[in-house]
Design a binder for these strands. Structure first.
Lengths: 250, 250
DNA sequence: GATTATCCATAACCTATGTTAAGTGAGCGA
DNA sequence: TCGCTCACTTAACATAGGTTATGGATAATC
């Protein structure tokens, strides 16, 4: 169930690109949902890479510890995201991963991932999932490189907003974001003090209202315009050409 | 020939993970080497994504144009690299791509990429290639986020050094790097003036000797120590467990 | 209910890097 | 040979963001 519940796989399935056997295969995978407490570590950098997970509930993140004692967060994982395919093809973890709040994950072994590659539609699905993650990463890199703090933060909030909206976790332009300003700073390469300053700025401009973990974007489109947000890398489903190709080359 | 000449595929092949049919398949792909002139554009952001390429000679790069007129370079491509799998699963290009100097590339259609996914070993190879690219991207993100200019540049040069060394393009710790300081700045999110300043700094410390495109690292290990370079994400070949799994699940 | 730990806001000050500008040398075409 | 352009260097100045510090909420623990 969990792997089929993943964004890309759901897209493929709804486009009729997955055969019944494909779906059965996904459903047959042994799933042991695991309850995670807040801050619980999934794995550490350089640890042996042997599994990946689908996040069912709660938020997670992957990060690298830096020599100066701080850390760089690479990505936040929301329900429906797959965590751990980053290390596919390596023996050791390139980054650590941990939960933010409590939640539930479904772990899979790399062995299972391999078996999945025996079915081309599923392999394509996994690959597309991985490329979507890479797109998010590239987008962050672009903003880290050349944009001012308020643009970075606006972009970050809008990205989270879109991702949450996609999984139905946004209501009345409001959502719950279980991140401290320190975590946000670690993701955006910014000091926590400056995150606070920047939030104040966005608040004064009426773009973001925040009360602890409750975020409200009174005018999401204004935010999007501020950063020229191009959401194709988040929202776009697999091209139909994909499904046609998949049906044509079984 | 060209796709088999790719780092990961060569690794898989030498570990006996590719069957004769796999290799034959790679060799059969229609290859039309194409000569590219300096600065020639391969494709533009938002263009239709229909092909990817293996770089045979010359350097390329992918980049995003920013609203303020500058650009952010996402990655430099050296001979043996695959350019364009980033957009797999999207209809449009997420980034532009162009050559830096003149060179030769081998284009493939996405159609061919799809057919390739019908053979699990090859799909695994492509996936592993993509994840290696993502690792480079993550590493850059980490350095963009929290490191000082001289550390970023040192890291960048050492990465290039390692990648060139792997393809035999380093001799006596020297190599040719056809990049202007402006391009380096666009990659590192740094003004060209500051790139120059930082080069001067590294020169004064005896870490980098540079004469236009000729770079010499008198003591590469010293550079690596400066940035605590962890080269596992570049050099590591596919884990042997991989090959075993591939042989076990045909 | 008191105490403590987190998280956040704001201020004062400092520094790395951006910006602008002027000058140098290499290459190159007329 | 002259003059142009391009890549680079260096300097002077400006500023975004880092750092340190203080105080005030709110939540957690006893």
């Amino acid at each position: 169930m969990a792997l089929l519940d993943t964004v890309v796989m759901r897209g493929l399935s709804s486009q009729g690109a997955l055969s019944n056997e494909d779906k059965a295969f996904l459903l047959e995978l042994e799933l042991n949902p695991r309850h995670m407490s807040a801050s619980e570590v999934l794995w550490l950098e350089n640890g042996h890479a042997d599994l990946f997970c689908v996040v069912k509930e709660g938020w997670g993140y992957s990060y690298r510890n830096l020599k100066n004692g701080s850390k760089q967060i690479l990505k936040f994982y929301l329900p429906g995201d797959i965590i751990g395919i980053r290390d596919f093809g390596f023996t050791r973890r390139l980054a650590s991963a941990a939960m933010i709040n409590e939640g539930v994950i479904y772990p899979f072994s790399y062995q299972q991932l391999f078996e999945l590659f025996g079915r081309s539609s599923l392999a394509v699905g996994i690959m597309a999932t991985a490329m979507r993650q890479q797109a998010l990463l590239s987008e962050r890199l672009v903003y880290l490189g050349k944009y001012a703090a308020h643009e970075q933060l606006a972009h970050f909030l809008y990205e989270i907003y879109l991702r949450l909206k996609r999984i139905g976790a946004v209501e009345d332009n409001s959502f719950l974001m279980p991140l401290t300003q320190e975590l946000i700073g670690d993701a955006l390469g910014m000091s926590p003090v400056h995150v606070s300053r920047t939030f104040s700025m966005l608040r004064e401009e009426g773009l973001v209202i925040r009360d602890r973990q409750h975020i409200k974007l009174p005018d999401p489109e204004a935010l999007a315009r501020l950063v020229e947000f191009n959401d194709s890398y988040i929202d776009e489903f697999l091209p139909h050409a994909f499904s046609e190709l998949l049906r044509a080359t079984p």
